[in-house]
Design a protein around this nucleic acid. Structure first.
Length: 130
DNA sequence: CGCATTTGACCTGCGC
DNA sequence: GCGCAGGTCAAATGCG
């Protein structure tokens, strides 16, 4: 199949085009800033899927080297929202779940307001990186 | 039917 | 180049 055809719809400015080669350099820089808004935290939890109030659809899973647990890739299922997250377990301490968010939601939270703050409240945060 | 997940193939960047 | 690692696609499949 023709990958270049069906890759990403070139719609908004936030389309995750795999290459910025056609952009001027200063816009390249801006695009970089916008997209790589990412942060991660680690919690001690039996389940890897923490309810953060958003609806996610899983789009991939890859094995991680030196780790018997895979990493799961999710995308926010709100139409047009390109926020992603990945979840994996710590290689040394399998009780620890590492959740990484990337991007900013372009829409309000759909579920209850509690969800995300409850995660911070009910789980012990081991590390947080911006 | 309309959504989500599974899963192997595929892509891309990087080091050798 | 080649091979690997990380990331993504999409057809098949599952489920309410």
């Amino acid at each position: 199949m023709d990958k270049d055809q069906l890759m990403y719809p070139i719609s908004s400015s936030s389309s995750p085009s795999p290459s910025y080669s056609k952009l001027p350099h200063h816009l390249h820089h801006v695009a970089e800033q916008m997209k790589h808004r990412r942060f991660a935290f680690q919690t001690r939890s039996q389940v890897d899927i923490l309810d953060d109030g958003y609806r996610w659809r899983k789009y991939g899973e890859k094995s991680v080297k030196n780790n018997k647990f895979p990493r799961s890739y999710y995308r926010c299922s709100y139409r047009g929202c390109n926020v992603k997250k990945q979840i994996q377990r710590h290689s040394k301490d399998e009780e620890i779940v590492v959740t990484t968010y990337e991007g900013t939601h372009s829409h309000p939270v759909e579920k209850t307001t509690e969800s995300f703050e409850q995660i911070l409240r009910n789980h012990h945060i081991y590390s947080l990186t911006l």
